[in-house]
Structure formats: structure tokens, C-alpha cells
Nucleic acid binder design. Sequence first.
DNA 1: GGAATTATATAGCGATCAATAAGAAATTAG
DNA 2: CTAATTTCTTATTGATCGCTATATAATTCC
Lengths: 195, 195
Amino acid sequence: MAMGRPRAFDMDEALERALQVFWRKGYEGASLTDLTEAMGINPPSLYAAFGNKEGLFHKAVERYVAERGKFWAEAMNEPTARAAVERLMRHSADFLTDKCNPGGCLLVQGALSCSDQATPVKRALANRRATGEARLRDRFERAKSDGDLPAEVDPTDLARYVMTMMEGMAIQAASGTTREALQRVVDVTLRSFPG
Amino acid sequence: MAMGRPRAFDMDEALERALQVFWRKGYEGASLTDLTEAMGINPPSLYAAFGNKEGLFHKAVERYVAERGKFWAEAMNEPTARAAVERLMRHSADFLTDKCNPGGCLLVQGALSCSDQATPVKRALANRRATGEARLRDRFERAKSDGDLPAEVDPTDLARYVMTMMEGMAIQAASGTTREALQRVVDVTLRSFPG
DNA sequence: GGAATTATATAGCGATCAATAAGAAATTAG
DNA sequence: CTAATTTCTTATTGATCGCTATATAATTCC
């Protein structure tokens, strides 16, 4: 069978550039013109490769979680709950303020509030955040049976507390708070963390 | 001089309704159609009364801070830093999840990420949040001279920590976290707060 | 080479965006 | 009453939104 004209752009690189636009402007704040210009392609190529704007966004989020979220797994593998939280928050403080990236977190600022038609996107991001919270809760449950968290600790509440802190750090980073200042916020948090 | 035709709508009530639309959908997510329908007026009336969409938004934010932010002053007047933070966070947890309101905080989700042309709005909200952080810092400085905070505490860092927590709570509330769950996050925070 | 297939570039679609022009309606001043 | 002033309703404006129809270019199969 005939194979047709070969694609003239690198899909991975185009997706990475779209990801950065969404990261900076959010789902609705990023226009197709913004996206196609950053990706170096024309609209028909975008639609042929990624479906539509929402499909492109979901693929960008998937890439974001897969590539930028690796440190979550590393953190959860630390031997104790405290070490896991410390590694998670230290890396987050660096990551959220990394000058190579737009400030903040795509999962937080990608579609926090939006028009009615974008509510599915908003919900998808909220689900991604909830997944992170669930991973923390699971890790804390394991820590309790390991004995490195006191028996009176509620893993659900502690996970929500840590997640709330990290989401707040994303807001701070998006507002221009520096890496050093964010690390001092982590200091304050860890000073009181059990273990 | 001639007084002209009297205005047929209540400006305060119209502004309140616009505020609620912005709160739910954000600055860019709220269309003029959304706004005029909620306010019960036609576009020319909106523009005559409030200038333009951005002017309306700023007036809505001003109203939001003045009316919904009263509890900040009450909290800062508590006798100790710890009591101030407890009152601030307890009220915030209730406020952010109040079923009479859209979930979350207008100052956080009003324009967290946006198109280039809305960046002035984004910056204005970041400045409002920074003002809250500064009030906390000032209160903690006073607490240090009052002796109800240890001398080794850095008021700037502690204020940033509390503000980060509150911003995270706004994200949680916007994602559907309940009042009770948010109060348990406050429990965890207060368990470690000095005083 | 010729047919089939796929990606490209150009141009433009209908819908919606924020904002307004035009004129009728409602008030006060004299 | 008339004149002046202001707000109202109606109907658009030009720009931009996400998206696509069309035709051309580039490749493979036969």
C-alpha cells in the first residue's frame, strides 16, 4: 500500500512546545495561533496529529505528568514518610521555580477557573491532582504499618495537608516567589512533620 | 441642569452578580454575555456604568476584598499570633467552601494563567495576595515584640508559609474538598504552629 | 510512469469575542 | 410646553475564536 507524504515535523518536539504554551497561558488562555506558532506547524497539521485543542491539551498533560512527574515515584520510594515528603517538597520547590520552565504547575494553573465549555478540562486536572493526593495517602498508610508514622496519624488528612501545601507552593511560584523563599516554606513545613 | 433618565438597575446588586460570575469562571472565562445576563442589563449599560470588562472586574475585586475580606482585620486583632492564624484559617476554611458562594477564592482563581492581554489583571490579583502576606508578616513582627512568638522565628517566612497554606486551601476548595476536610487540614497546620 | 495515500499550505468558514453606533425613552430645568 | 441630559433597547461592528474545505506536494506500491 502507498505510505503517503511523510510528516515534516517532530511530534514529540511539537507536543513539548504546545505543553509550554499551555503551561504559561492555561488551556483557554492559549489560542490556536499561539500553539501553531510555537509548534511551527499549520492548523491542519495540528488537527491531523492531535485531534483538536482539547486532545492536544490532554496529550500535553500526559507528557507533563510522565516526564516532569518522575520525581514523585522517586520520592515515594524513600524509606520513611518523612524522607518521602522532604524529597517531594524539596524537588517541587526547585521544579516550580525552575527558570527553564514557566512558573508554577500545569495541573494547578492549566484550567483552575474557566468557561462552561472547558469544565471537562478543569475536572480532568482536578482528578490528576487527586491522584497525587491518593499516592501520598497510600504512602502514609504504608508508613504507619512500617512504624515510621505514629498510629494516631490519619493518612488521608496528612496527605491532604501535604497536597494543600504543594498546591499553595504552585500558586506562590506562579506569582514570582523565588526558589529560596519556597525552600524556606518547605523548612517551616518539615520542622513540624512527624518522624 | 437636567438630570437625565434615571438608572433602572441597582449598581451594587449588578456588581455583586458580576462578582459571582467572575468568581465562578475567572476573568477571561466570563464572557460579556455571561455578565450582562447575570446582571440583568444590556452591554451599553455595563459600559456606561463600569467602563469596560477590566474595569468591572477591578470593581468586583474591590467589592470582594472589602466585603468578604473583613474577617482578616478581625483575625489580625486577636491577641496572639497563634490566635490570629487560627481565626484566619478557620474562617477561610468555612468561607472557601460556603455553599452560598462559588468554591475557592477570587484572588487565586480569577486570573491565575491567562492570555497575554490579561496579564495586568493577573498581576493585580498577585499584588492583592501579596498584600495579605504582608499583613501577616506585620502581625508576626508585632507578635515577636509582644513576646508571643519566639525570637528565632522569621516573620517573613512564617507569613509566607501561612499564605501558601491558605492559597492551597483555595485550590482544594475549588476542586470540591469539603468544609470538614479543609478544617482537618487546618487542624494539622495548627498542631505545629508556635504558641 | 501511474495510482493511491498522506501531509502540506492557503484561505476562509460560522460563531463568538469585547465593545459601540443610533435612536427612542425618561427624567429635570426653565 | 421645549430644551437638555442621561439611560435605555436594538442591532451591529471589526477582531479573534476553534476549526476545516480545497488544492498541491511528497511519498510508496504496482
